[in-house]
Design a protein around this nucleic acid. Structure first.
Lengths: 207, 207
DNA sequence: GACAATCTATCTATGCATAGGTAGATTTTG
DNA sequence: CAAAATCTACCTATGCATAGATAGATTGTC
């Protein structure tokens, strides 16, 4: 997901250099991929020399790890916010799906999806964090479905774990297909298919 | 998809150099991504100098385009073979999904999925072919579902177009999630969810 | 001998990283 | 509290490896 669609750049130039570097790097990775951005791009973006970037992030691997650490924190924050907002399971899942829409409209991938595509070439610490992000997302979706079913909020058609895996896969893959289409077209479509199987528990509490 | 899981390297060294270059390049792109392989890697792989590669493929962009051209041909061949095999719609869809399993078991992405992730940095002719591949896959799946429904072979639960988009997205995204998991785990899961909505038209022709 | 396929040698551009320096703020301490 | 020490956040300059590409042999083959 794109939990980390950073809070709309607060006053932008007002942030400190490490934060600005992370912001720019994240944008570049989501738009172009890990192996297609350089310290030079980054330096140009925020107006310092490449050597200065090394002062804040010793190596590109460190920068990548920091990027994913922040993204993991953002995910936790986003999920916590959703959980605390007090909607039912379906509303929570819808809020989760919503986090992908902005990313799609920008023609980007999820930071984690982009890095997952480059997984074989990533420094190991970065790869580990990517895996952690995907696991955490999937677990949250699975648990949200399962709890919704248990609480009688949701009529679930299928195995919560399989549905969760499929939702994450189709959202990540959806962003891959989305570029060059109408904004939100693909996320809407895959979400529609998903929610057909996770319906509000309206009437008959049947057997 | 990975239609182009090249026919198991026939005698391998017996093929001509352009073919061996394409084979090696495809393997590298699927495993590592377009921006993470070089003429040097390729040269080392097949035992010639990088300069010799330029004799066969003037530029990396040419190589990329040739790679996608062949992959598009492979897709057409695969779909034609499936269509001619004479199974019903569900068998055809299952055969289509099967082409993703080998890719998953090798921890790779679909050539087209890998390139889609790097889309923003691709030479334009390559990007166009990537889009063409995705459209063609989606169209085939959609039509296969729709025809299956029309022929009374399939009980389709939802819009064929949305189901097709979701299937492709979840397969492509599935390969993204699959690395580091049990082989075929993710393709099986997303295919299972898909086929719940595209069931054999068994008994009651209902209304 | 002509053409195909490959080679050696080399070029320019770029990537990540390091060394070493500097201006200015902050902290320590006699 | 002022001088000394240290730290922060940059800089210039440079190194060394790799990337894609080119020119001009050389070799093999019909």
């Amino acid at each position: 997901m794109n939990a980390a669609q950073r809070p709309a750049t607060p006053t932008d130039a007002a942030r400190d250099t490490p934060t600005r570097l992370l912001d720019a790097a994240q944008q570049l990775v989501q738009a172009r991929g890990y192996n297609a951005f350089s310290y030079k791009d980054l330096a140009a973006e925020i107006g310092i020399r490449t050597a200065s970037i090394h002062y804040h992030f010793k190596t590109k691997a460190d920068l990548g790890a920091a990027l994913m650490d922040r993204y993991l924190d953002d995910l936790d924050d986003a999920l916590t916010t959703i959980d605390r907002a007090g909607g039912d399971a379906r509303a929570r899942l819808a809020a989760f799906v919503d986090t992908y829409r902005l990313t799609e409209s920008q023609g980007m991938l999820c930071l984690c999806g982009s890095l997952a595509a480059d997984l074989a070439t990533l420094p190991e610490p970065v790869g580990q964090r990517v895996a952690r992000f995907l696991t955490r997302s999937e677990t949250w979706v699975r648990d949200t479905i399962a709890r919704g079913a248990a609480a009688g909020e949701l009529a679930v058609d299928g195995d919560p774990s399989a549905l969760a895996t499929t939702l994450i896969a189709s959202l990540q893959g959806g962003l891959l297909l989305a570029r060059g289409r109408a904004p939100s077209a693909v996320v809407d479509v895959v979400a529609g298919i998903f929610f057909d199987r996770v319906r509000p528990q309206t009437p008959s509490p049947s057997p």
